[in-house]
Amino acid sequence: MSAAKSLLSVQNLCVDYLTPAGSFRAVRNVSLDIGHNEIMGLAGESGCGKSTIAFSLMRLHRPPAFISDGKILFDGEDILAFPRRKLEAWRWSGASMVFQSAMNSLNPVLTVFEQFRDMLARHEKTGREAARAKAAEMMAMVGLPADRLDAFPHQLSGGMRQRVVLAMALTLRPRLVIMDEPTTALDVVVQREILQEIVALRGRLGFSVLFITHDLALMAQFADRIAIMLEGRIVEEGAAENLVAFPRHDYTRKLWAAMPRIGGTAA
């Protein structure tokens, strides 16, 4: 896929962590393209650098992490060169992020509606009434009743909280949603409900997804293309069905072999 056609193009990205013992390169020369309306999966074990990439893409990485080399192009524009104002406007409306723990990404002392209103007022100067209507519409889209808008995060179940975060992430119609282990803390049934809903919403609204997980089987069900990371590098990338049926890299094969599957032998 050429760079012009893709929505997000990461080129030779390097992210280093400064430690007292010297700098440690967590992401090494990673290049990655995400097409329009594409679900791109990024898989790997803990510590391989996949979350570091997610945070870097949104420029949410914090010291001691810093981007030492590379480019991140969003629709041809270099995100790393965005001034602060432009970056703030771009977050939520150009690209948004869903984190693993919805409890930690929602403010515990504000109702769900106040969090929607905060975002809408800041980005679109939406008034209270209009914000209420918009928030209710988004809640309905993810299958939550509008009266839940007045609930505090602790009054919702884990699955409902993750739906709220998803609704917020889609409110300003971003073209890219980065999801870092969005369903890892949830039960399998709720996980399937939410991911199926994301696929359906993508069909309706049109957006790209960068989906990060360590669960290869789940990724194969959900992503169009998959990249496998090992120690800061992408070792294999390809269409989801090829990575399942014909993994080429030893590490990908090792990951598949390490997973007990119901279809496999019990003995």
Binding site: Q196, G203, F222
Partner: peptide, 14 residues
């Protein structure tokens, strides 16, 4: 039925 199964795609059932 909700256990991840790489052989079954979500988009087919979206």
């Amino acid at each position: 039925s909700a256990v991840p199964d790489p052989a079954r795609r979500f988009d087919a059932e979206a």
